[in-house]
Structures are given as C-alpha cells and as structure tokens.
C-alpha cells in the first residue's frame, strides 16, 4: 500500500484508507482509479502528476 500526493496542493491519496468522500474504498490501489482522475482538492493536477510515497522521498 502506498501514498500518492498531488504536487500542486498536497492532497494525499492513501491506498490503505481510500477516499470515502470520493467513493474510493479502503485498499483501492492508485492504479485502479479512473484514468481521468484529477486531484479531488484542486482539480489542477492529473493522475499521472501524482508523486508516489512523498514522505519517504523527503
């Protein structure tokens, strides 16, 4: 399970938690999100812009 972060606004998609508000259940992998997924908070960045495990690379 990994975390993916929007490089623009900092929103984090945590695969362990999913995103209940958006309808992505816990355990749903980032790759399984729809191809036209955009950041739920800023809608500026697309799926392919997201950074994997940002905290580990800090």
């Amino acid at each position: 399970m990994a975390e993916y972060q929007c490089p623009g606004c900092g929103y984090i998609y945590d695969e362990t938690l999913g995103d209940d508000h958006e309808g992505y259940p816990p355990g749903m992998e980032f790759d399984e999100l729809p191809d036209d997924f955009v950041c739920p908070d800023c809608a500026v960045r697309y799926k392919e812009d997201f950074l994997k495990n940002p905290k580990q690379s800090d």
């Binding site: 623009g8 606004c9 908070d41 800023c42 809608a43 500026v44």
Partner: peptide, 8 residues
C-alpha cells in the same frame, strides 16, 4: 491566475 494555479 494565482487562484487557478493554487485553488486551495
């Protein structure tokens, strides 16, 4: 412009 670059 800044709003659209950084909406939050």
């Amino acid at each position: 412009s800044d709003h659209h670059a950084n909406p939050t």
